[in-house]
Design a protein around this nucleic acid. Structure first.
Lengths: 195, 195
DNA sequence: CCAGCTATATATAATTA
DNA sequence: TTAATTATATATAGCTG
């Protein structure tokens, strides 16, 4: 079409090719639009020039058309991402199951699934943990005791509220880390409200 | 174009519309292909007729073109699925973190983050679990002992390998559930290879 | 609903500015 | 380059079978 018929093969002359590309692309989009208007069709055209530039034309939202296309054609457009996600899911689930199992063992359940050597190790772990918790509770109780004791001591001396300085030099004889205690006093009931 | 110029609006006559749709669609695809051949462009055309039928034409794999489109245009084609996945991920992660925290507490770590009442409960849980594990180990050891004892007994009587029946009627005097033991013998080293 | 036909409308290759 | 011009090639609306 034009002054002369042209062969249907790639146009060698770069300049001519560019000109033809622009003319024909514009026309293609126009025709696509006419199809949409005249025949009430949904049309999407995507063109990448040989220089990599993107041109697009759609009768409505390109996203909607491509989603419809994906649904109708069954083409999974995000297959790679999807499979990657599935893989990560599996990893998470496995990890979760392992943690669950471990927790159950730590609670003395499902012990049948453990070999004796693991049982041995589990018992050691549990006893160590129980000791740590016990120690921790003792420390907490000692602090509480120290706090009460200190209050009694100062009340006995008629000082009313204890100041920080008073606490540092208080005659409580044990080696508890009282300075730290002053900065962050143990307040059980405050913590309880958070759980 | 044709015998007479037509208005650029939807063709009312259903039959005419269908005929025009087919003619124009075919031509659109032809033009798309010419653009591809003449100008070395990548072209994809998607058309849905007003009856919902899908027609498509692409210079190469439609999937590849649409993926390229998605990349270049930044259009997230699977946004809904993607967001749903992200949501599930967050749930999994949260659950994992909770389990992790709980496990650490069960191992006597991070105890500072627990209020005293929880410490109390934790200690009870640990001690109960330790007791269960201890009991279980005792049962295991007793079974082992019974097994050895039984072997000694039968060797003393010159029977060689102990048969199942022999195990059931063996004169081991304790009340251990030996039948179960026979079905699933405790094999520590077999299990060890799996961990 | 398809396939031709044909008169016109469009598209466009080559050319010119 | 890019934009107009123009001679021709295509596309196609309305027919007919």
């Amino acid at each position: 079409m034009g002054r002369g018929k042209i062969e249907m093969k790639a146009i060698e002359n770069q300049c001519n090719r560019q000109v033809t590309f622009n003319k024909r692309r514009k026309c293609l989009f126009k025709k696509a639009n006419e199809l949409f208007v005249l025949c009430d069709a949904q049309v999407a055209v995507i063109v990448f020039s040989n220089t990599g530039k993107l041109f697009e034309n759609a009768s409505s939202s390109m996203k909607r058309i491509l989603e419809r296309y994906s649904t109708v054609s069954g083409l999974q457009l995000c297959q790679n991402e999807y499979e990657h996600m599935l893989c990560e899911f599996a990893t998470h689930r496995t990890e979760n199951e392992k943690l669950h199992d471990k927790l159950r063992h730590m609670q003395g359940e499902d012990l049948d699934s453990l070999p004796p050597s693991e049982l041995d190790h589990l018992q050691q772990t549990l006893e160590l943990a129980a000791r740590k918790v016990r120690d921790r509770r003792v420390v907490g109780l000692e602090r509480k005791w120290a706090f009460l004791n200190q209050g009694v001591y100062e009340n006995q001396n008629g000082y009313g509220q204890a100041s920080c300085e008073a606490a540092v030099v208080s005659p409580v004889g044990n080696a508890l880390p009282l300075p730290e205690f002053r900065v962050q006093p143990v307040q059980p009931n405050l913590h309880n409200t958070e759980y």
